[in-house]
Amino acid sequence: MLKIISNQDFDTFSNNAKLAPRQRSHHNLHEQLDANVQRLFISTEPDTYMRPHRHSESHKWELFLVLKGQLDLLIFNDEGQLTQRHSLSPDTNRAIEIPPGTWHGYACMSEGTVGLEIKEGAYLPTQPQDFASWSPAEGEDGADAYRDWMRTAQPISE
Rank of each mutant, 00 (worst) to 15 (best):
I5L: 11
Q23F: 14
D148P: 00
D144R: 09
S87P: 01
K68Q: 12
G139I: 08
R22E: 06
H26E: 08
P46W: 02
L2Q: 15
R54V: 10
Q38P: 05
A137Y: 03
T102A: 09
P155Q: 12
Q23Y: 14
S135N: 00
T113I: 00
L116Q: 02
G101I: 02
L124Q: 02
S56A: 14
R85L: 13
H55N: 08
A153E: 03
P100N: 01
S89L: 05
Q127W: 03
I98Q: 07
K3I: 15
Q8R: 15
L71W: 10
W61G: 13
A122G: 00
Q38K: 08
G115D: 05
Q127E: 07
D9L: 10
V37F: 11
S6G: 03
G115L: 04
T102V: 14
R151V: 10
Q32I: 04
Q8V: 13
S25M: 12
M150Y: 02
F76C: 12
E140I: 03
F13S: 00
K68C: 04
P52Y: 07
R22S: 05
D91R: 11
D141Q: 11
N15M: 13
S43G: 08
A145Y: 10
H59N: 14
M109K: 15
P100D: 03
S6K: 10
L65D: 04
Q81Y: 15
N36W: 07
R51F: 05
R24L: 12
N28E: 10
N77E: 09
F76D: 08
Q127H: 02
R39F: 08
E57M: 06
H26M: 06
Q127K: 07
K119R: 02
L124P: 03
L124S: 09
Y146H: 10
F64C: 07
T44M: 13
D47N: 13
D130M: 06
D72I: 05
G115V: 06
